[in-house]
Amino acid sequence: MNHKNLVFALFAAGATSFMAHAVMAAGEDTSEPPKKTKTTSECTDGKVWDAKKKACVDAKKSDLGDDILFQAARELAYAGQYENSIRVLGAVKDQQSARVLNYLGYANRKAGRMELGMQYYKRALQADENYILARSYMGQALIEQGRVEEARVQLVEIRDRGGENTWAYRALLQSLGGVRQY
């Protein structure tokens, strides 16, 4: 490989790595379920496990940071405890962050409040139009509503924003039957 090709290859690899990192950071795009903690095994009524205090605490009255509260809300949502997830998300200080709005959308949709969920997904995308996880969840909600063409638009948006090799893209593609039609 000559010098120019080597420089280009290194640049391309760095750019690809940067894009993958940016996409992941922007959307917490992961196929990994959250780590289970005592939040879902011992705490009730929207309380969160505080590792320092070794106790379940009221999320709103705790001094837990936004990241810990968000992870707890995500854990609760994955465990099917949607109302508790919403309660914990309400304790996060940054109520306008795309990730909080997205999980409010997810938890409300899964709890049977589709229209409210869709409003939160739209607000998440207003906060960050590159938040591909919100696009994926919104696309899945659109499919549930029979709005398949609109879901395909979200798949294209994810792809065009550099997210083709992400869980968000694969999950929505699978929901569409695994067929790329764009």
Rank of each mutant, 00 (worst) to 15 (best):
N2G: 15
A9P: 00
F11M: 14
F11S: 13
A12K: 01
A13Q: 02
S17A: 15
S17I: 04
A22K: 15
E28R: 13
S31P: 05
T40D: 13
C43V: 01
K52E: 10
A59C: 01
S62W: 04
L64G: 01
D67S: 13
D67W: 05
F70L: 15
A72E: 02
E75G: 06
A77M: 05
G80W: 09
E83V: 07
S85A: 15
S85R: 05
R87Y: 09
L89W: 02
L89V: 01
A91C: 06
V92D: 05
D94H: 15
D94R: 15
A98Y: 03
R109E: 11
A111C: 03
G112H: 01
M114S: 11
L116S: 09
L116P: 00
Q119C: 00
K122S: 08
R123V: 00
A124I: 10
L125H: 06
Q126K: 12
D128W: 07
N130W: 05
Y131L: 08
A134K: 10
M138Y: 13
V148D: 11
E149W: 06
E150P: 05
L155H: 03
I158G: 09
G163R: 04
G163A: 06
E164T: 11
R170F: 08
Q174I: 01
Q174R: 09
Q174H: 11
Q174T: 14
S175H: 07
G178S: 10
